[in-house]
Design a protein around this nucleic acid. Structure first.
Lengths: 342, 342
DNA sequence: GTGAAAGCGCTAACAT
DNA sequence: ATGTTAGCGCTTTCAC
């Protein structure tokens, strides 16, 4: 692995000169020298030592992709199609911007913080952060960072976030159910914070608009233990009582619930209608194909990185909190109940 | 961001002393000094500059995860559940080993090579490499590396690989079809190299064993353009003629084909039986649930990293080429044809 | 147009 | 037990 210094020696010139031609500042160097240096570069396959470069320039060239994830939830977090797609989109965009992606996946925010600090990352994409996490990391790390899918405007100073119209999306799809004649509609999620909480609110908005009163037993809280959904699914089956529609906070749950119900002999959408949120592989592959709220994850990742790169370059970033539009992807999991006004 | 030097000044001592207590070499330092240094460490939230450390030690602490992927294939490579799960497993194992994961996803091997060289990574996990890629990267990069799911024993010197029993798996599942009375069985894939080629061979092994002659029209080559499978699916439908069984090289294709056929009114498994390979979300979510060959992707990633870490530590690594065992996951996509000897 | 030299933050061999 | 010093490879200022 040849170094600038070595090449300078070989050519009996200075490191500055070699460095100059490496950086294309050929205006400062005589053509003859340029020629000689370039030959050496070729011959020895020169590759800069990024570590040394970064040390000298006090930057790192690294964009950290930090995801707080309890390994429990889906066994191996990134297995989740959302995380996978997001990771791919981020990496691709980061690379296009001339940076590199370092992955920090952990359920321990302090571990993420110290790793990120050590590497002196130039910027951060953050996912899965709760209020305390967001607060702590912005206090400790003074670097540009953009959150994805968070709702921390009231907690985090200088907050920049790229998310989706979660509330509106869930409002729309609930309204869609209502317009199709449904009145007894349950909402299913495994938590009541962040994105899922917004989706819950959207669902409630639609109910209220239709003068349907929401009571706590409309909300079915899933409590999966690890990757094992069996108990949770059992629970759903017991609780869906005489609902005619199910709004699931994610396609993941919608698909599993649908399969489970089908296995128990429930006809979908004849016996019960189901809708999801995300429009990922789950909703696409399941049958009947799931009517769901479409969000563009790749776009989300790209946009987040774009914004981050702008912040790093001290450019204007426009809107600090973005909610990407979503739309209903109408498929076959909703029954049109007779006698409606639609 | 405080540095060792600064702290040494503040304490009117040497960098060596500070460095020593940072590294827990308290035997070399007086208790009083240890105490004082540790207070400073706390007070100023000292975090080492990894760049500087790496430069001095001529290492990087980075494990590169390099995946050669044409963005075309699934639109955004890592969206593929295999890639996502592998990434998660690798990251987790790398972190546990005290290293960090840097992602290099590109369809251009030379880009991967120069990035990896620049960063002076301590080791590499490689996926999706063809013969020329493997040869080129081992020539240029003199670092420990382990391949995943490659078949390059004849090309790459010092080859270390973690894969699955692709051939045996496909042999087993084809045999399973045969034992269930199938004789006219097609094989479907989108290429004829590497993993899929081995799976094809396994399929052929089973045919031969049953004295069924394989001819070229048993092999249905899929040619998806981008994420759009429509044409390819059309093609499959036209070509499945009077086959009674379909061996797909992946669950991904099996699931899409199954849905497509169902949409066209074909009954599965009554009209035609389908099996896949991977046992991922596709086979689990589809109905009828897909009988497939199970492989453990998380195990694959972990094992690869373990081996890599051993190589970095100059330990004995045992087998250089590993084929993880696979087994048939029997579900409901295969019809037992009457009159068989099973 | 070219070169000398300081410095980025840390490590480690070598004094004292 | 503590301090000095010479790098690691590159950038950059400033002088020639």
């Amino acid at each position: 692995m040849i170094t600038i210094k070595k090449m300078a020696e070989l050519l009996e010139t200075s490191t500055t000169t070699v460095s100059n031609v490496i950086h294309g500042k050929t205006g400062e160097v005589s053509p003859a020298m340029v020629e000689k240096v370039q030959q050496l570069l070729e011959e020895y396959d020169y590759v800069p030592n990024i570590n040394a470069r970064n040390l000298a320039k006090n930057k790192s060239g690294i964009i950290g992709l930090a995801m707080k994830a309890c390994r429990d939830k889906y066994e191996n977090f990134i297995k989740d199609p959302f995380a996978g797609e997001l990771t791919g989109a981020v990496e691709s965009c980061v690379r296009a911007g001339g940076y590199f992606t370092m992955l920090y996946i952990s359920d321990d925010i302090t571990e993420i913080i110290s790793s990120v600090a050590s590497w002196n990352v130039d910027g951060l994409i953050l996912h899965g952060m709760q209020a305390e996490d967001g607060l702590m990391i912005t206090q400790k790390i003074k670097k540009p960072m953009v959150f994805i899918d968070c709702y921390l405007e009231e907690t985090v100073p200088q907050y920049v976030n790229v998310g989706s119209e979660d509330r509106i999306g869930c409002y729309k799809i609930t309204k869609y159910l209502i317009e199709n004649g449904h009145e007894r509609i349950a909402f299913i999620a495994d938590n009541r914070v962040g994105v899922d909480f917004e989706r819950l609110k959207g669902y409630q908005d639609a109910l209220k608009e239709a003068d349907i009163v929401f009571t706590e037993d409309h909300f079915i809280m899933l409590e999966p233990n690890g990757a094992d959904l069996t108990k949770a699914l059992d629970d759903v089956y017991k609780r869906i009582g005489d609902f005619t529609g199910l709004v699931c906070a994610s396609d993941y749950y919608a698909a599993h619930i649908m399969n489970d119900l089908k296995d128990r002999g429930v006809k979908i959408p004849d016996d019960i209608s189901i809708v999801g949120f995300d429009d990922n592989v789950y909703s696409q592959i399941i049958r009947p194909a799931l009517t769901t709220v479409h969000q563009d994850v790749t776009e989300k990742g790209s946009l987040a990185v774009d914004k981050l790169l702008q912040m790093i370059g001290h450019q204007e970033i426009g809107e600090r909190v973005i909610r990407l539009p979503v739309h209903i992807e109408e498929r076959n999991s909703v029954k049109k109940i007779k006698g409606t006004h639609v």
